[in-house]
């Protein structure tokens, strides 16, 4: 049985900052329809890896493949063209704009005909309809799609950012600490949303410091250490403490720790 092609894959990524080697031959993959979590201690190269995958930085060596085809990202916009959307931890929404405007920011739909082509008029109705449909598909509870994002709670705001990324991502959504700024209840709402997006078939890369969240959501867990992938595990086969031990180097990595690769 041949292995299916990863949706997004990195091979031997190297990134140096002066004398510091942030990525030292890092590999990575995410398969169709799964949530792949990335964990690692501070300085393990997690965020450098994510920045390389989302186009925020260019690795010195190594290659990135989308559906098996080598690609080069020069900016997050490039990554987006390949269907990779990123949700950033610091609530990347415009608070004074409403939910629909935020969802379509940078991808506005214009009216058909002369009104759109000459007068550049936005098709507000269509954007509202599409956004409303999408949000109700995700069972995202919201009073009005036309309320300013600042009237929402922190969790709902992050929900808007997550839903926007999922709505436009063709291949992968990268979520960088999506619950870091949120309370318990709010986090639960966002986790729920992430699960629904996975169930719709969109693979997700989840970076989180929160072990319970990682173990609750992830299908597989990529453990990053000293700039490399040292293990990939199934959360059901491991306890949190074991994963943390691998992550920090307190426990030696055995062959079986790599079986999920």
């Amino acid at each position: 049985m041949s292995k299916p092609t990863p949706v997004l894959e990195a091979r031997g990524l190297i990134k140096r900052y002066g004398h510091v080697t942030a990525l030292d031959g890092a590999d990575f993959e995410v398969m169709p329809g799964e949530i792949m979590a990335i964990i690692g201690d501070n300085g393990a190269g997690k965020s450098t890896l994510i920045k390389a995958l989302s186009g925020a930085l260019i690795p010195d060596e190594g290659e990135i493949l989308v559906n098996g085809n080598p690609v080069v990202f020069h900016s997050p916009i490039d990554a987006r063209h390949y269907g990779i959307e990123t949700v950033y931890q610091d609530l990347a929404v415009a608070p004074a704009l409403n939910i629909v405007e935020n969802m379509f920011l940078g991808r506005e739909i214009r009216r058909p005909g002369v009104l759109g082509s000459v007068f550049r008029m936005l098709d507000k109705k269509r954007m509202l309809t599409e956004a409303t449909e999408y949000m109700s598909d995700l069972q995202f509870r919201i009073q009005s799609m036309q309320q300013a994002v600042e009237t929402l709670s922190g969790g709902q705001r992050q929900g808007v950012a997550v839903a926007r990324a999922a709505a436009f991502a063709e291949h992968v959504v990268i979520m960088d600490e999506p619950t870091a700024a949120l309370g318990v209840k709010e986090s639960g709402m966002v986790l729920d949303l992430i699960r629904k997006i996975r169930d719709r078939g969109l693979p997700i890369i989840l970076i989180s410091h929160n072990m319970p969240h990682v173990f609750e959501l992830a299908d597989r867990i990529h453990i990053q250490r000293l700039g490399r992938r040292i293990a990939v595990i199934h959360p059901k086969d491991y306890r949190m403490s074991e994963a943390v031990a691998i992550m920090t180097g307190a426990r030696d990595v055995h062959e079986e720790d790599k079986q999920a690769i």
Binding site: V93, A94, P95, L105
Partner: peptide, 11 residues
């Protein structure tokens, strides 16, 4: 409103 979010939205 939020220049960073606007930039990240690809603008």
């Amino acid at each position: 409103d939020n220049p960073e979010a606007t930039r990240l939205a690809g603008i």
